[in-house]
Design a protein around this nucleic acid. Structure first.
Lengths: 201, 201, 201, 201
DNA sequence: CAATAATCGAGACGGTACGTCGCGTCTTGGG
DNA sequence: CCCAAGACGCGACGTACCGTCTCGATTATTG
């Protein structure tokens, strides 16, 4: 999954195998420093010192700071909850609330910031991240929306992708640019507004 | 406007006045480097060299890299178009399309990436940016939404902020994480979906 | 004289001039560390730390360790004593004794070792050192030998250079490969042997 | 001979015996790199790579770089020619010419440079080298000088050690610091000067 | 013949020093 | 007071080697 992982081939490379212990220590040190000082005040040198590891041991696994950070934060990824499947409205609400909650965690906020800020320079990483993290999340939501269109809980001819981005984006825009943390009822307000539409009846 | 501007008092400081030529060269060099190498590969030293200016001349005007960047990108800011005021739907559509267009410009994309990525470390900047750039834009949209609630074009009890973030966020989420550039009809699809709602009638 | 010195032109370079204070501190730190840990256990990083100076300040002046060391030890160079001019034998003896004495100083020993060991890699330095340090010393000795040939104290047809290298080399070979430090009477023994020759009368 | 040699006991150690092939390859690689880049630009890692050998295979045999180098250069040592014993003058001349010739070989020059330059840090090596290489050479010369004192070809009361170092040193000083390679007649000039002495008759 | 044991190549390990780059500050002579 | 130029102390960068270690595979001698 991570850049550092051994390829899934059965082949063993010659020479001493890479220490799993070191890898764990590096990731932990990275997350600890990230939490303490933020992405700006994080440097490989400190990670190595904190992990009790030589710098080369880090560079052997990750080409640079961004890649390390990306793998580190990926270890934190909390998947969206499995929809319960009873009511589409309840499922959407639960998903949206989970997203709000995750965005409230500064560590996830950092993850997004990192990807947005430095992603442009590392398209390879962006692609991988999108495929392995972003797209699966979207698919969970899409599935619920499609289910609603079938059961009749949602409009039959719903534009699934438009609705998807409205849902996701409402959290993204609110949490990032919001002057205050996302308030408790926010998810419910968005879901209700989406369901009923803003147009007059 | 920028941090660098001379106070608007009629008072003139003693000594040689600051060179307007230098200021322009600095801003231009900053934008050029930003476009070439992104925010990460940009440093004061290179800006100074490219602008043919001493480093001190930059530091005399801006406290650091972030502030310089902020002023530089502020020069690019394209305001949202003034709503025409005939139809709420048309106004929303126009606003959304303008946003999509701006996001398609890589230079504006960088602006957002910069603020999102590095903003966390500089709350002061974020605050100022939010106040001077983000909030006025939001206000334009809010005004249209409120007008719609009054004229009856929109639901009377619309949740203005929820709708606002759904609109903004739908573009943000789509353009950033989208695998392809935003397609032509996207704005219309979002507006229609928002107006009608996804719930069954 | 040293690599670091400003060219002797009257021209001043633009910008802030190099700090003479820093230069002195670097040389002093180098000599201190050289005395403490030898040439092997000396590194730029420690010199910088000890001198209270950034590494770049050292690299701005000297391209590398060897060059720095060379300039540092050059500051120690004790010139040969001025011949008194009364007796050629006494003058040669005094010069030889001074050389023995200097070689007994571990710091001068290091200087030679350095030049011999690393000199091959830095022909430019070797040339400079030969011209400014070695050759003047030789000339002092040559002058005495020539004087002796004129005054009749030495053979009229003496091979000045052969004698020169015999004198210098006898100290070099003795002190370097000798198992013990050069003993007190050594210089006198060499001078006598040179004067009388080893051939039977 | 070298540190690496198996003890001369008839006992064989259990397990796989050390590969003679690897040993040869290591020595050859060492000498090749020494000739190419000098002692400074030589490192175990490159030796191993060039020899197609694991680093451990080197460290199993030699404790470090110096010891390896010492064994490597020892393979090059050209002994002084056996004196023919007819004329002391001719013997001294032959010995001195052989020394001049050896110093002209850049590989032997490196050997000396290495020992002089880095020897100070490794007294153990210096001692061994002096005992096994230097002292035997000296003894050859001393024997000739003593023989001359007995046969009457040299002065009866000759100071053997002083003369020894004058001879050796004259080549050392000339070849090392000389601006040009040692010229053809140099050895003869030194021998003549030594025999006749520089003092007036 | 199988077990044992040292060696082989390869290469990862924790370190140290390298030489470079950029930071934000400072210090020149000259407008 | 500003300008350009550039040195300053600092700290992180990514690389190269150090000497040690751990792999699976090989190659002898011993039981």
């Amino acid at each position: 999954m991570g850049t550092a992982s051994t390829a899934a081939t059965g082949q063993r490379r010659p020479g001493r195998p890479r220490s799993e212990r070191a890898e764990r220590a590096i990731i932990e040190a990275t997350l600890a420093l990230l939490a303490e000082s933020g992405a700006a005040g994080l440097c490989i040198e400190k990670v190595a010192a904190r992990a009790g590891v030589g710098k080369a041991t880090i560079y052997r696994r990750w080409p640079g700071k961004e890649d390390l950070l990306l793998d580190a934060v990926a270890c934190l990824k909390a998947p969206l909850p499995e929809p319960r499947g009873l009511s589409v409205r309840d499922d959407l609400l639960a998903l949206l609330e989970a997203m709000c909650e995750q965005f409230a965690d500064p560590c996830h906020m950092r993850e997004f910031a990192l990807l947005l800020g430095e992603g442009a320079a590392y398209p390879r990483l962006m692609t991988r991240y999108t495929e392995t993290v972003i797209e699966p999340r979207r698919e969970v939501i899409r599935a619920v929306l499609r289910r609603g269109a079938v059961t009749g809980e949602l409009r039959e001819d719903i534009d699934v992708d438009a609705a998807l981005f409205m849902m996701i984006g409402s959290v993204l825009a609110r949490s990032r640019y919001g002057d205050a943390p996302v308030e408790p009822g926010y998810a419910r307000r968005v879901v209700d507004e989406m369901l009923s539409g803003i147009g007059a009846r």
